[in-house]
Amino acid sequence: MNIKSEKEEYLEKLWTMMEDKEDSLQILSANMNRNDHEKIIQELQMDDLVQTEGNSIKLSSTGEKKARKIIRAHRLAEKLIFDALGGDYEKGACEFEHMVNTELIDSICILLGHPQECPHGRKIPQGDCCKNAVKTVECAVMPMTDMEIDQSFRVAYINGQKDNVRLNKISTLQIRPGSLVKMEQKYPSIVIQCEGADIALDDNIAADIYVWKEANNIRESGGEQSKHDKKSRFEFMRINRGR
């Protein structure tokens, strides 16, 4: 790993420490466990990315800006790899954020429908695209509330990973990434069909469930996808899922 990536790893760690309200130098060094710990801290100080004071260390405003970008890339990458591609997120994402530029990250963000949390449930920093709520025609992922009646989409991801009670309730009904849902009714309450069961739910839950748009989404009747369709477009989501 080169020194640039090493420094970025430190910035990432400092950001998560900031989120957890931690600023102890020991915790940082214990967590990173690097031989050249001192050197990297020095480099960071020279670049004016961190501020140290006695035993505490925290990001400077420039450091924060930079860390924010990296974190955003990291968490969006996790989101992409884990939710969209069905892979193991920790392996890929560490490398990923050091390689891509802002434009690419923004387009991933738009593709994923501006997710708010990474798969661990930590907050993804907002980019300009989220603030402007960019919606392109190609936007492949959208909240369930935007579905039209009778459309069948596949669940991409669910926001609110921290609320275990709620998440568990949702997933016991088999509403989880990859399952097919069909919008039955939107008013007075949303009713969806998911894996053979009709489920009524509140708008605010539906707004946290994001779905993939499918090409031939309007179906005559019945919510279940036939075998043929399943293979064609969404096969990529099921990589690593077979035996």
Partner: peptide, 9 residues
């Protein structure tokens, strides 16, 4: 509490 209710067919 949240409203998430399975309905009988």
């Amino acid at each position: 509490g949240i409203f998430l209710q399975e309905l009988p067919p």
